[in-house]
Design a protein around this nucleic acid. Sequence first.
DNA 1: GCGAATTTGTTAGTAGAGCATACAATTATC
DNA 2: GATAATTGTATGCTCTACTAACAAATTCGC
Lengths: 157, 157
Amino acid sequence: MDQSVLMSEKARNDADDTPEFGQLDGIVGFHIRLAHGAVYRHFTETFTGLDLTQKQVSVLWLVGENPGVAQIELGGRLRMDRATTMTIINRLQARGYLRRERSSSDGRKQALHLTPEGEAALEQAKNSIAEHEAWLKGRFTPQEVEKLVEMLERIHE
Amino acid sequence: MDQSVLMSEKARNDADDTPEFGQLDGIVGFHIRLAHGAVYRHFTETFTGLDLTQKQVSVLWLVGENPGVAQIELGGRLRMDRATTMTIINRLQARGYLRRERSSSDGRKQALHLTPEGEAALEQAKNSIAEHEAWLKGRFTPQEVEKLVEMLERIHE
DNA sequence: GCGAATTTGTTAGTAGAGCATACAATTATC
DNA sequence: GATAATTGTATGCTCTACTAACAAATTCGC
């Protein structure tokens, strides 16, 4: 049924078949977006049981490693503005994974802490992350992973 | 009970200073997400005049290089499902940048074409993209750019 | 050839993430 | 002490992505 063997590549590409990237293929930002999409997709597939997004896990992770951290500091690290940080914190608090405390040293700040449930969820999340990272790192040698991370850091400062 | 007696330097670092990435720093997916965010942010800043998103520009670009392409094929290339592709196409069509035509070879498909306005917008977008890419590539040597793109392609296949 | 399955487009609804704006409370600055 | 800046909060909007269901066209199985 597939008569493509009888047609030249050019003819197939011209009209009705799958499009080529063409010049778009040389755009670095384009590849970053596609790679991010692929990672995001695999992440959500890996996290079917635990219902957490990348952002939520990052927040739990950072709160776990920095108990008492303020929202503004979290947002600064994860490059989120205050409003975005709020919605994520609200969601995690509503699910009982973390709690707010007024900072004793600065009354404007909220000190964030994990609840026991939050710690358990983070622990479980780290296992899924390990699996997810293995999938991702499997394409590269250790040297390449190091180089990739270093270059990505140059982008996000 | 924790009292102020225990408020040592370490305690102060835990509570009041900027958080560290800690173990999160070794997660490749985390850096991809941050890099993507940085690129996305600079993109929107570069595109203040022309009101187009990355996705919309990618679609215009691919339609421009593949006139008559179907929505399903576009979505396949950009890793979008049919519903997501629809909303983007709808938006671009509403702004008069592209038009739908029934495919003659397959009545189920819509053949997509740029309007003259769409071609003009794409031309303008490519100029902004060039500026945006210069900002991005400025951090790397040509060899590094090549390696980065090659590694990102390994992620998104 | 004909009925059934598949593909493509469409619509509607849901959700996460991001951004802008405005406001209140607290702290810092002059 | 008055004013400015910081932090959290609330509201509303946009874009992207996903699911589910449906219709029309095509392809497949018999």
